[in-house]
Design a binder for these strands. Structure first.
Lengths: 218, 218
DNA sequence: TGTACATCAGTGAACGCGCGTTCACTGATGTAC
DNA sequence: TGTACATCAGTGAACGCGCGTTCACTGATGTAC
């Protein structure tokens, strides 16, 4: 099988960039914003070591703080992870909004752009993506995560409605939206797995996304 | 959001059933087939406690054997998990073959049936499914898993080729197959997540699958 | 058929490890007067 | 402006725990003679 694109092909059009170095370590006795520092440390660890490679101790080490410090800001380990994922999802939602700015309302290009950003996020931040969707939901069973996910999907459904010439989110709009979501969701997982497996070959992601959008919105 | 079906709606058409009770415990000093017993124990633990809830000690307890016994059959913990996932994937492949038996070659119904079985497996054995695809691949980075996955996909591509009236697996066949795979793959993850979240509502899975197959194969 | 023996699957005790979390504490900071 | 004090973010040592893995061993089984 040959379903992987070159690094350029993924990164350039999807705009994958390295994380800007956020401040982590404290300078004096007080950290300044340890909560944010720990979330950032957690995020990095999840990205570097995978969703299950995260430990409170590691995050403390990275933030330059004692292992007891987090408990002034989070109830427990799970709370730290939930907070980190929530922060990632907010970023995800902002990115999607930015992605469609300037594209005329009701244009299928908006759907394609949203899909591209969805996949882009999954490839840029696979740790967060998989922590939210990769089957840890048992452990991270949290209402706030659920709600954040639904809010994003509702936002997409509004765009789908416009493309289909509907004013409301009808059952048919939901059905089509669900098809599109399933597609980009699965695509995200597969591309991530393939990337890891270092197989050769190419795929024109832009064309794939717009082709599917056309097929499902028509 | 309302994207979950009732238990009947999922289980009946997809044929979700409980695991038949396989033999686990040994009777005398020797187990008989401890390798198989440990794989079955591992499988159950992965399904019951989630992909990361598995421990060698638990599997030993379940198989009624000392914690050192597995090392006569597996190099380490990872080997146990890989063996368990491989066994699940073989079952998955068999199920897909059974699902299309009796449906005329080249009929899009074959694709729909394959998709249904794909989703069905993910819902019946979410632990195995997520261990293969849910982002643990870093840890389970194994050539045999990779190959097993590719073999299954190749098999599906042959069916897609027939539906499109092609004799070979052309690039276009691969493209369409990839679209279909992405869709059922994402669908599997979403349905599993939603099921967990106990939301209300309904979805006609049969119609969804055949509708998407039609749109992508046309 | 009976016996000696090689094989090797399974034992059970032990190990070192890193983890999440708690605890009484310390010291930097902001504010009221 | 200077001082006393309340607040509370961060310390560092300690805990109990379950884990994966190792070790020298034991005892059931199959086979050669």
């Amino acid at each position: 099988m040959v379903w992987i694109m070159t690094e350029q092909k993924i990164s350039a059009p999807l705009g994958i960039t390295q994380d800007p170095a956020k401040p982590l370590k404290k300078e004096g006795y007080h950290h300044g914003d340890l909560r944010a520092g720990l979330i950032e440390a957690t995020r990095r660890l999840i990205e570097e070591k995978g969703p299950d490679g995260f430990s409170v101790s590691d995050a403390c080490r990275l933030a330059g703080v004692s292992t007891a410090a987090p408990y002034k800001h989070f109830k427990d380990r799970t709370e730290m992870m939930v907070a980190t994922v929530l922060e990632g999802m907010a970023r995800h939602r902002d990115n999607m909004q930015t992605a469609i700015a300037g594209i005329p309302e009701g244009s299928p290009d908006r759907i394609t752009a949203l899909g591209k950003e969805y996949v882009g996020f999954a490839l840029r931040e696979p740790g967060i993506f998989r922590l939210k969707f990769g089957g840890f939901s048992d452990r991270l069973d949290d209402d706030r995560l659920q709600q954040a996910g639904e809010a994003t999907f509702t936002r997409v459904l509004e765009e789908v409605a416009k493309c289909l010439g509907e004013t409301d989110v009808t059952p048919e709009v939901q059905r089509r939206g669900f098809m599109l979501w399933s597609f980009v969701h699965g695509l995200s997982f597969i591309l991530h797995d393939q990337k890891l497996s270092k197989m050769g070959g190419e795929i024109d992601l832009d064309f794939l996304l717009s082709d599917v959008a056309r097929r499902i919105l028509s």
